[in-house]
Simulated scan of single mutants.
Amino acid sequence: MPKKFIAKWMPNPETLKDHKHLKMFGERLHNQNLWSLNRHSAPGAFAVGLFVAWIPIPFQMVLSAALAMVFKVNIPIAVALVWLTNPFTMPLLFYVAYLLGSQILGQEPQAFHFEASLAWLQASLNTYGPALILGSVVLAFASALFGYLTINNLWKYSIMFKWQQRKNRGKSKQT
């Protein structure tokens, strides 16, 4: 696992704990698992971050940080991963979620016409909302499971690879 690479980009936990907006979380932020990279906190953080990235709501980073605290996984990784859905990727990703939701519900996808009005927003929530939410939740669970299993297996294989290297070095010293 590229632990050193990830650790280099992570913020300092002490700085974040003393941040004026984060002090409201008090002692909850002092849990070491929220800031360390280990084989438990990293896969869980990927699961949380990828799950929240698919949920079509504002303030995804706040939800991701809250869930990371609940599940006691790495906060910086969980929060960073929600940026997979950024202003550039969001339209395509949520369109895919809408298409998947429409297919699951057995509906024909509706043509999309934007209007800047409250009436259009209400009508769109009724028309597009159920399929978008269903597709988003399905993709959120699938992505979370995929991310967790992938990082967990990469971590496991990385450890096995290091042990094999140590074993091989020990053999070469004996000869």
Rank of each mutant, 00 (worst) to 15 (best):
E108T: 05
S36D: 03
M10P: 00
L134N: 05
S158W: 06
A45Q: 01
K162F: 13
F141P: 00
A116C: 06
A119N: 09
F112E: 06
I57R: 00
F5T: 10
Y95M: 11
G26N: 08
W35D: 03
P2A: 06
N31D: 15
F25A: 09
L84Y: 08
I151Y: 02
M160L: 15
L134W: 07
L63S: 04
A119K: 07
R166Q: 12
F94T: 05
L99C: 12
N152P: 00
S136V: 02
P58L: 08
W9R: 15
L149Y: 06
R28G: 00
S41K: 01
I159V: 15
A65Y: 05
F141Y: 03
P109T: 03
V62D: 04
L16E: 15
F146W: 02
L50I: 07
G49S: 08
I6G: 05
L29M: 14
L154I: 14
L63Q: 05
G101Y: 01
P2M: 07
N153K: 10
F146A: 14
F46M: 03
K23D: 11
N31P: 05
Q122A: 04
L105Q: 13
L92T: 10
K8V: 00
Y95V: 08
L50P: 10
M69V: 12
T175A: 06
W83I: 01
Q110I: 07
F71T: 12
A65D: 12
N86E: 04
A119M: 04
L121S: 12
A47L: 02
L118A: 15
R166G: 14
N168F: 11
N86F: 03
L37K: 10
P43V: 03
P91D: 07
Y148D: 05
V79T: 15
N86P: 02
R169I: 07
P109R: 02
K17Y: 02
W9T: 12
A53S: 15
R169V: 04
V96E: 00
V73I: 05
F94M: 14
L37P: 10
M90Y: 07
S36Y: 00
A65F: 07
W155Y: 09
S41F: 06
R166K: 15
N12Q: 11
K8G: 01
K162L: 10
R169T: 04
P2R: 07
K162A: 04
E14D: 15
F161Y: 05
P43L: 05
A78N: 14
S158K: 05
R169F: 02
S172R: 13
P87V: 06
T127L: 13
Y148A: 06
S102Q: 04
Q107D: 10
I57V: 15
L145N: 01
V52W: 12
N168T: 08
L50D: 06
G49E: 10
I55L: 12
N168L: 14
T175D: 08
P109H: 01
R28I: 04
G101R: 01
Q32W: 00
I77V: 15
L154D: 01
K167G: 06
G170V: 03
S64D: 12
F141M: 05
K156D: 06
R169Y: 01
L63P: 00
L139R: 03
A142N: 09
H21P: 00
A53M: 14
Y128Q: 11
L154N: 01
N168Q: 14
K173Q: 11
